[in-house]
Design a protein around this nucleic acid. Sequence first.
RNA 1: GCCGGAGUGGCGGAAUUGGUAGACGCACGGGACUUAAAAUCCCGAGGGUCGAAAGGCCCGUGCCGGUUCGACUCCGGCCUCCGGCACCA
Length: 827
Amino acid sequence: MAEKYDHAATERKWQRRWEESRAAFVDTSAPGDKYYMLNMFPYPSGSRLHVGHGRNYILGDALYRYQRMRGRRVLNPMGWDAFGLPAENAAIASGTPPRQYTLDNIARMKEQLRSLGLLYDWSKELASCDPAYYRWNQWLFLRMWERGLAYRKQAPVNWCPGCATVLANEQVVDGRCERSGDPVEIRDLTQWFLRITEYAERLLSGLENLPHWSDRVKTMQRNWIGRSEGAEIRFRVEGFDEPLTVFTTRPDTLFGATFLALAPEHPLSGQIAGRSGAARGIAAFIDRVRRESRIERESEAGEKEGLDTGVFAAHPGTGERIPVWLANFVLPQYGTGAIMGVPAHDQRDFEFARRYGLPIRPVYRGAAGDVDPDTLTGPIPHGGVLVRSGDWDGTPEGPEALARAIAWVEAHGAGKGKVGFRLRDWLISRQRYWGTPIPAIHCPSCGVVPVPEGELPVLLPPDVAFRGAAGNPLAQSESFVRTTCPRCGGAARRETDTMDTFVDSSWYYLRYLNPQDETRMVDAGRSRAWMPVDQYIGGIEHAILHLLYARFICRVLRDLGLVELEEPFERLFNQGMITKLNPSTGKIEKMSKSRGNTVSPDELIARFGADTVRVYTLFIGPPEKESEWSEEGVLGAYRFLNRVHELATRVEALSEDGGSEAGGRATDLARLEHRTIRRVTEDAERFHFHTAVAALMEFQRGILEALEARQESVSAVRRATRTLLQLLHPVAPHVTEEWWERLGGQKSLLATPWPRFDADLATSPRVTLVVQVNGRVRGKLDLERGAAESAAVALAQADAKIRPWVEGRQIKRAVYVPDRLLNLVVQ
RNA sequence: GCCGGAGUGGCGGAAUUGGUAGACGCACGGGACUUAAAAUCCCGAGGGUCGAAAGGCCCGUGCCGGUUCGACUCCGGCCUCCGGCACCA
């Protein structure tokens, strides 16, 4: 019996070797057969890595090693998304400054990555909290400000009371803070925004050019951008000079509009309320609706409430007077914040009209003919032709009706065709210390002035106390806040808002190409050579936030002439999450620290070794799907690696028989070897390491059987074993490197070319032909590959198992799939 | 409500183009080794049914139907679960 495999010593040895020979597998020279792969920018939070995170990195490393062995030049950098609120909260709780806390966590996480045997090109490491990085956030911000893509405005914004900061729209989930879970409040504040809406159309249409992204992610982005075509229509309002503009996706139903409704936040609402003649109730109504929380306002159960302002508008088609109402269901952020109410054809308008007794005027005749509005129980479903709509009458519902309506409003000066988006501008202000300072100065005489480019970076001051007091700690730093106006030289105050950390992660993939460059943000030449990222690997939780922002900033950089590419990530692979039974709830849940169902890789590595953790993590299931972690399952991977060790030990002890390793004789073992190379190669190409591992388990068993049967030459057994080590290397690098060396390998497996298969050897000369009678399996035949149909039929008829099913019956038809199947159709 | 994804043994999963459903692993049962246990190795196993056994036969990939010589796979209609969007005009 061989000595037990000492995984700890082996892993330590190889991790040291890889570290020492790092330069040998780092390559950023001109790309030939290049491959740029990226794991998402990890956030080095206080919690340690758990195997749920580990899946991302292990898959990435297996791919990296595989691509290297395929002979591709691979760029595989890693850096840190280092800013963020947890570090600041930790500073408040423990007194450790955010920088120190973050650097400690980075060091710890790097050690965990190393202990899994993960190889990254650390020469390109970057951290977003480094001034050498965040100065370029500031530089980009100034460029965007110049072009009107960064701007300040007062707007109702999402305020998280728990985090004491504002949030972007994307960070509000179900009316709650995506991070802390606190219910989000709406506050009117002046904040900095990036004009992502300017790019809405391009971000949407660009999805068409991403064939390798999943439909899932693309759909999520489409929904989020929320494009809808329609028209803006102007209505004259009695007593006001300014017309009221509404947005509608159904301008064809214009003649069915019987009222207008304003969001209480709409400027006209305020003007009407301010009028002396207006009812006092209007101001009260506006006040009440505005105070409703976002959750109440957007919940489906919410009652539709409204108030008649007493003001009338003129219908542009009929000239009729229609009333102007205020309504709580009209959202200020979408369209123009005002709608035309068409109760006959819209559910919400219908409910509103019924509640307040407003007239209902159908303009589409349905399949059942014309309808009496008084008997309606809901809006009239789509279909039919237009009626009561002037010269549009008779037009069938559809694109033609929409086109006629838009042409009509444009011809009559009553509006224009318009595309609306759900997407809103990206709010990047955060009232926190631990982020990129926004490079702006508030001067009492010059207003808001940009920091001159030569003064960048605006550094975070070190003299900040974190006491947990309300407000931004940065605003407490006098040395930071007090400055002079770059325009007039007078005393001024610095902006104390910092940027959303998603700004940092929106362009880091470009910065890996020139991380130390002090002269420019991105290197156009290198980005031309390496970008786009060939393979991006990360969790589905970034489907909207990060990936939309990164696509946006990439386009901005392109428009600034800094890069040539439109889409940063050619292929995107979203891992399924690892789930595990949560003992406290009894349910299978996503593995996360907050749920308390995490499994630490550290303990598993100590018990079974990093290779075991890697094999099991990849073996657990297809990487794109969720998989459940099982404690017992790890043992299967552990046993397999011990069997590989055992096999290699026995192979090493075999005495050489002088045969040639190059051989390639068509023995059963050679056939198995080549079949396995083919399987593993094909599986690796589509990231299915779980089936590759299954194939390698079969291969290991096959080699062992051949060894024990003593029917193969020693050299053939050695050769097969070496092939097993090569194929297994991306998944279990340590044990394979160790045995590769002991069995005579000269170079690291990383530098050893991936085995090639011989197509003839990979296909067996004999095949099992399945014989069906009337589509049911009745027997099997062992045949030469490529046997003729007539021969197969004859053998089948003679076969003892098949004969009873065809005897005495007429064979009406024989379906023959060579080498696979024969189906005899009898009556 | 709209959009996207999924549904296969006790469990994770496999079946790449319509061609042997359940590879590989876990758990389980039996055996070998051992004084014993652990570890390891070998064998067994979807369900039902007939048979002493060898071995048959029937059913079976969420449900109902269709196409086909043949359907986990394609088509139509449903059900359930997961995810996204949603008073978005």
